[in-house]
């Protein structure tokens, strides 16, 4: 098998707030192959964004710090790179789209100059050529009247349009990996569907690998090849999309699936996961999901390791017996 474009091993990103240490990302690992889409799901606070920002090495420090692990990008550990070397990667080989299209663009610069900026920086094009390329990118992202948009300011565009601009900006330098942190969460459902369609389409054309973060399993179903389910800074389940959506093993994944409505198919009652995500200092030992788990048992006082069943990883004692 060829090396994956991104391989994260044992990543630990902690936040140090006075006496409190918050393990926002705790021993997380996964890999993304060239041209593949990996979905990361989990409730709010499970550490998805922190994982993404760790890969970009953009964790605000203080209070955050990557305290351990490896982030292998094309086989090289990003955690060993200098800030200077990281700058050549960001926006060039790895780029990122954020959740809030309304606030993620700079209000005082035109759309064109914001897209062209990365092209000028990484590809050394002249301003004129970079703007021409920006126009093509906008067209590729199905923005209407691309030439006119170049000279418009973000406040003149709708949310969906701005997210298209963000995507154009992220794809400006033909990255190998695109990290999309809930790119559709802030948008209307119809616009959401259009953006997802666009991203799928672009991925087919460009062959960029995508790390797609969402808390919406419906979106995962649309776009992902593989899925990582995160809970409280831990990976609890990881495998092929079909396997995970059809036959989830971890009680948390089951809970997530039970708490979304099904439109076609037999009606079944919604069963949201009871309780709330525990705050990080409430979890000291044992399985982090046990306070909300329907299958909790004595063994759960000890935290289960990630166990291999089939070609899937599950962190639950329930599957212990089936291991290997």
């Amino acid at each position: 098998m060829s090396t994956p474009v991104l391989e994260v091993n044992n990543l630990k990103t902690y936040f140090f707030l006075g006496e409190n240490v918050i393990p926002a990302v705790d021993s997380v690992g996964f890999s993304v192959n060239y041209g593949e889409t990996l979905g990361i799901v989990g409730e709010s606070g499970s550490g998805k964004s922190v994982t993404a920002l760790s890969i970009m090495r953009l964790i605000p420090n203080p209070p955050g710090k990557i305290v351990g692990g490896q982030i292998l990008f094309e086989g090289e550990d990003l955690l060993q790179k200098t800030e200077e070397e990281m700058r050549k990667i960001r926006g060039n080989k790895i780029s990122m789209i954020f959740q809030e299209p309304m606030t993620s663009l700079n209000p005082v610069y035109t759309v064109g100059s914001q897209i062209a900026e990365a092209i000028i920086l990484h590809q050394g094009l002249s301003k004129k050529d970079a703007l021409k390329k920006s126009e093509q990118l906008l067209e590729m992202c199905k923005v209407s009247l691309p030439k006119k948009r170049l000279n418009q300011y973000p406040h003149e565009l709708s949310g969906g349009m701005r997210q298209r601009v963000m995507i154009a900006m992220a794809l400006a330098c033909d990255p190998l990996l695109l990290i999309a942190d809930e790119p559709t969460t802030a948008l209307d459902v119809t616009v959401q569907a259009q953006i997802l369609e666009l991203m799928k389409d672009l991925q087919r054309k460009t062959g960029t690998a995508v790390l797609f973060i969402t808390h919406d399993l419906g979106v995962i179903n649309e776009i992902a090849d593989k899925v990582v389910v995160m809970y409280c800074g831990r990976v609890v389940e990881c495998g092929k999309k079909e396997d995970i959506l059809k036959s989830p093993e971890h009680p948390y994944t089951k809970g997530l699936l039970n708490s979304i409505p099904v439109i076609d198919g037999p009606k079944k009652p919604l069963r949201p996961i009871r309780g709330v995500v525990p705050s990080p200092n409430e979890i000291s030992h044992g399985c982090r999901f046990r306070s909300r788990c329907d299958y909790v048992m004595d063994k759960c006082e000890k935290e289960p390791p990630l166990m291999n069943i089939g070609d899937r990883l599950v962190r639950c004692w329930l599957v212990h017996n089936f291991e290997k």
Binding site: K88, G91, F98, E100, S104, H122
Partner: peptide, 24 residues
Amino acid sequence: DYIRTARSKGLSEKLVINRHALKN
């Protein structure tokens, strides 16, 4: 957020501050 976006493009800290932050 747009400052984070500027950083994610690979701009140097100096450009992030002088170009993206200062004008705002």
